[in-house]
Computed example of a mutant assay.
Amino acid sequence: MKRHTLVPLLLLAVAAPAFADTCESSFQKKGNPLSGTTYTASVTVPELTVKSAIGQMNVIAKGNNMDVLSSDVENGAMLIEDPQTAMHKTIPIIISATSEGRTGTVAMTVKLNAGAFAKADSIRAEMCKMLTQVKPGKAGEQLAASTPKASTVNISASDFGFQLRTQNKDNPAAIEPRYKGKIYSITGRVNGVLKSGGTYNTGFELPNGSGGIDFESVAITCAFAPSQAAFALALRPKEKVTLVGVVDHYDQIGRVLWLKDCKGN
């Protein structure tokens, strides 16, 4: 799957030139790589309501495989993330929307952790590419009501497990909103099949460098779709498979990420 990231790219999108100058002139940088850097930018759009602005940003973010952690339409606030990659941790992006009269303003704040380096010019360009997709009037309302096409994330069980492990250490409460509803294709060796509540499920084997009990690991468990009973029953421990499923929920106490409707691929 092709993924676009903030470093070096925030998003790959077609910018609407009508608001580009306004966005670029609003751009500000605060802080430094040693303590952490914050970037801000905004656009002002005619005939834009708060509801339309938040709805549009929700579609724009999800359409580019970014994660929407929270969305408050009434108060015009969102938190989205650029997903973690091998090059960087998750990057939080705060969106706020206000409206006065018949004019709306959408502001974006990007926060980079201490030690993260990025060119301000590149960040500004990519922030504005995102913001200038916001449309006025009926065109904006149509965009806000549209459904972004879901993409499947292809990843190995070991890489996904490491990613979840580090994120659980940082903030376990953020894992479920970060992943819920996303489609994952996970490749790895399974550790057996169990039946619980009438549903077959299996977990992936994950590396354990310590050799003992890993009290920080996060398990990945797939609950099979009803049509997959034969596939599940035929699985053997340590068999290498690729399973495609939808993230259902995260058990913070047991440290288990659950996927539902899993199918063998």
Rank of each mutant, 00 (worst) to 15 (best):
S71Y: 00
K240F: 01
F117L: 12
E176F: 05
A77G: 07
L6C: 14
P33C: 10
A232T: 12
T44P: 08
Y184C: 04
S210T: 12
T98G: 07
I183G: 01
A219G: 10
I213C: 05
A229P: 04
S99T: 13
I80K: 02
P92V: 01
V134W: 05
K89H: 05
D251E: 08
A118G: 03
S158V: 07
A118S: 10
V193A: 05
M127K: 06
D248P: 02
A97V: 01
N32V: 04
V241S: 09
A234P: 02
V218Y: 00
D121E: 15
S158H: 07
A225E: 13
Y250W: 10
A219I: 03
T187Y: 06
Q28P: 00
T22E: 13
S42M: 11
G140W: 09
A18P: 00
A150H: 03
L243Y: 01
A120P: 00
T199L: 02
N64Q: 14
G245D: 06
I213Q: 11
I60G: 05
I175H: 02
V68K: 07
L164S: 09
A234S: 14
N113C: 08
A77E: 09
K180I: 11
I183Q: 10
T187C: 08
A16G: 14
A232E: 06
F162C: 08
F224W: 08
G104L: 01
T132S: 06
G63F: 14
L12D: 15
K240D: 11
I91K: 03
L131K: 06
N191L: 02
A116P: 02
M108G: 09
K260C: 03
A41Q: 06
E141M: 10
L10A: 09
G115K: 02
I91P: 02
I175D: 00
K30C: 09
A125M: 12
P83S: 07
V45L: 06
V7I: 15
L112T: 06
E100M: 05
V68R: 07
V110A: 14
C23Y: 07
K169P: 01
P237Y: 08
S158D: 15
A120C: 01
N201G: 12
D67W: 04
Y39C: 00
K29M: 15
V246T: 14
G264I: 01
K260W: 08
A15P: 00
G264K: 02
S210C: 09
T90S: 13
S70P: 02
N168C: 13
A229I: 14
L243R: 00
E74W: 09
L6F: 12
Q84I: 05
D82R: 02
F231P: 01
N171Y: 04
V218H: 03
E100D: 13
V190S: 05
D72G: 09
M130C: 03
I123E: 03
K180M: 11
C128Q: 10
G192S: 09
S35W: 07
L9Y: 11
T37I: 00
T221A: 06
V134T: 11
S146M: 09
S151V: 13
V246W: 02
Y250H: 11
V106A: 13
T22N: 12
H249F: 13
S196R: 14
T85K: 02
L48S: 04
V7M: 14
A97M: 02
K51Y: 11
I80H: 04
K89L: 09
L259H: 05
A223F: 10
R102S: 15
A225N: 12
K119T: 08
P172V: 07
S196G: 08
